[in-house]
């Protein structure tokens, strides 16, 4: 077997193939049997398969898979945590928006009320002042009118006197003598008539 251990495993070195085959045949172990069906190699293959697969299984189940599982677990937790946090923040934002809108609506309402009140107050004030001014004006007008009236009455009261004086003067100038009484009666007659 010693010669076989140094034999190249080169698949293309076909010269070696025959050498190996012959050497194997000479040792009686590996004859011309199709290699995959050669029972001589079964023992060794089974042994090493068992050893290597057991090693693989232990490495996988003890180290590699728990580690990957943990990584995935941590990531999933992290993502879920982050999503929950995002959801919480979103709700908070919504609440803030809602509160802001309520405040805004209240403020608008208040502003409206204030404006309305102010407008009302100004209007009342204006109305009152206007009423004052109007009454004042009306009073002044009434006074003026009564004064005009009295002046007029007074003026009218002097009409007869003026007329008789005028007539007397005219008659005096025309006739050269005074007929004061007759003139006065005539004027009074005209004025009354």
């Amino acid at each position: 077997m010693a010669s076989n251990t140094t034999t190249s495993n080169d698949t293309h070195a076909t010269e070696d193939t025959h050498a190996t085959t012959e050497a194997h045949g000479g040792n009686g172990g590996h004859s011309d049997v199709f290699p995959p069906f050669d029972p001589a190699s079964f023992g060794s293959q089974l042994l090493w398969l068992a050893l290597s697969f057991a090693a693989l299984y232990i490495l996988m189940s003890k180290i590699a898979l728990p580690r990957i599982g943990e990584i995935l677990e941590v990531r999933r937790d992290r993502i879920e945590g982050d999503l929950a946090e995002a959801e919480r923040l979103r709700q908070k934002t919504d609440q803030a928006i809602e509160a802001y809108e309520t405040d805004l609506a209240n403020a608008k309402q208040k502003a409206h009320t204030i404006a309305e009140e102010t407008r009302e107050a100004i209007r009342k004030d204006l109305d009152a002042k206007r009423a004052d001014v109007e009454t004042d004006l009306a009073k002044k007008m009434a006074t003026a009118e009564s004064r005009i009236q009295s002046t007029k009455t007074e003026a009218l009261g002097h009409v007869e006197e003026i007329a008789s004086d005028t007539a007397h003067a005219m008659v005096t100038n025309l006739l050269g003598r005074t007929a004061q009484k007759a003139t006065k009666d005539a004027v009074a007659k005209v004025v009354k008539g």
């Binding site: 190699s41 290597s52 180290i63 590699a64 580690r67 941590v74 990531r75």
Partner: peptide
């Protein structure tokens, strides 16, 4: 107990799998 080319490749297979999986996840990157 013969260590054959078959055995060698079984060992290589196991080493390749294990080292890849263990080394690639050693950072435990999020």
């Amino acid at each position: 107990i013969a260590f054959t080319n078959s055995s060698l490749f079984m060992v290589i297979t196991v080493l390749a799998i294990s080292s890849f999986l263990i080394l690639s996840t050693s950072g435990r990157g999020l």
